[in-house]
Design a protein around this nucleic acid. Structure first.
Length: 269
DNA sequence: AGCTCATGGCGAG
DNA sequence: TCGCCCTGAGCTG
């Protein structure tokens, strides 16, 4: 589930369902019980996302900082909430709805200062209106690291995960192993603005779709195919299958303990 | 019942 | 670079 678009969508959902009213908070699983007691009955005053980090504001009480990691999930439902299962780290509930958080890497009550420190260590986020790609370009343009690794580095750019990484490099015909400093300014500008478009659409649709209309299965005379993560993609998790554009087998490799996917023909140095 | 794998990230060495 | 943390689905037997 969780790349940046998911987290921004979750922030919106929290605002819509819980903001401006007192919320009941509990930690059935137990690991967040003390903090849940501190926010129980308080009003949710804001909900923000930066990259893959979600911040739920409870006024002067502080922020609930949530990072879903690889396995975490936030599930919503209508009130009345059913009895929570044992793995629910945090349940928020009001007379209208409930939200259950399971398996997060992080769920902690933090101060304004701690929140500011998190923002500071994160790169620009294509989904934050005030951000642009300038700070990312400064790092990328002087790095010998591969562009594939740089795109996954949240200090460089926040919110891109393994799917957007693979897909945006495909869409721009860029070999994932090219060094950051070998990218041109115009290549980077195109990547950044494409991420803004793709990820905004991801928030809206709540899934990752990266295939251009003229490359969609129906346009190409192929049967419809929707990937596990819910959208239509070019290369992500398509190892050994034919490239939708040129038919070459999609390749996969380990890069920094993650699976990388690319088309060796469409993405050349 | 027990494996493997997954859209992440951290700290130790 | 490796091991580890968190959960659940989809296999295998």
């Amino acid at each position: 589930m969780p790349e940046g678009h998911t987290i921004h969508r979750l922030a919106e959902d929290h605002r819509e369902l819980f903001a401006g009213r007192p919320v009941r908070a509990s930690s059935p699983q137990g690991k967040f019980s003390d903090s849940a007691a501190l926010i129980d009955g308080r009003e949710l005053t804001s909900a923000e996302a930066h990259g893959k980090h979600l911040f739920l504001g409870f006024g002067a009480t502080g922020w609930v900082h949530i990072h879903l990691g690889l396995f975490g999930k936030l599930g919503f439902g209508d009130a009345p909430a059913p009895p929570p299962t044992a793995t629910v780290r945090l349940r928020l509930a009001n007379p209208r709805a409930y939200a259950d958080l399971r398996g997060p890497t992080t769920c902690a009550l933090i101060t304004d200062g701690e929140k500011a420190a998190i923002h500071e260590r994160l790169g620009p986020d294509p989904l934050r209106a005030a951000d642009d790609g300038e700070g990312a370009w400064e790092r990328i343009s002087r790095s010998r690291t591969s562009v594939a690794a740089l795109l996954m580095d949240q200090k460089v750019i926040a919110g891109v995960g393994n799917v957007y990484r693979a897909e945006v490099l495909f869409r721009h015909g860029i070999d994932p192993y090219r060094a950051g400093r070998d990218l041109t300014r115009s290549e980077w500008d195109a990547i950044w603005s494409d991420l803004v478009t793709l990820m905004r659409e991801g928030v809206r649709a709540n899934r990752i779709d990266t295939v251009r209309p003229d490359h969609l299965p129906e346009a190409m005379g192929r049967p419809p195919r929707v990937d596990d993560h819910g959208g239509e993609v070019y290369v992500y998790r398509r190892a050994a299958q034919p490239c939708h554009i040129c038919g070459t087998e999609i390749r996969t490799a380990d890069l920094a303990a993650r699976n990388l996917f690319w088309c060796p023909e469409c993405q050349r140095r």
